[in-house]
């Protein structure tokens, strides 16, 4: 079970195919202030490596990834 995070923003990217999950993530992250936490859920199997790569490249922190019945939920914190 996931740690409970104080989520500041929720993004639903379920049913969206590549590259939309990372696009929606990048777009939503623009409005966050450093330290805020975003949760994004996606069903695209590519989102698992993609969100990790996005966090690595942009310097933001991927706190946790939870997989439940084919839905990946990522918790990310703005640097």
């Amino acid at each position: 079970m996931a740690t409970t995070y104080q989520v500041d923003k929720l993004v639903d990217a379920k049913g969206q195919s590549c590259p939309m999950p990372v696009v929606m993530l990048a777009k939503a992250f623009k409005d966050l202030t450093p330290g805020q936490i975003l949760a994004i859920s996606a069903t695209d199997p590519g989102s698992k490596p993609d969100v990790r790569a996005w966090a690595d490249k942009t310097g933001n922190t991927l706190l946790e990834m939870v997989e439940e019945q084919g839905v990946f939920t990522f918790y990310l914190q703005k640097a």
Binding site: C18, P19, V22, V23, L25, A26, A53, W54, K57, T58
Partner: peptide, 11 residues
């Protein structure tokens, strides 16, 4: 378009 979008998302 996907390459361009992916790159833009990656900063």
């Amino acid at each position: 378009s996907i390459m361009a979008t992916g790159a833009a998302a990656m900063g």
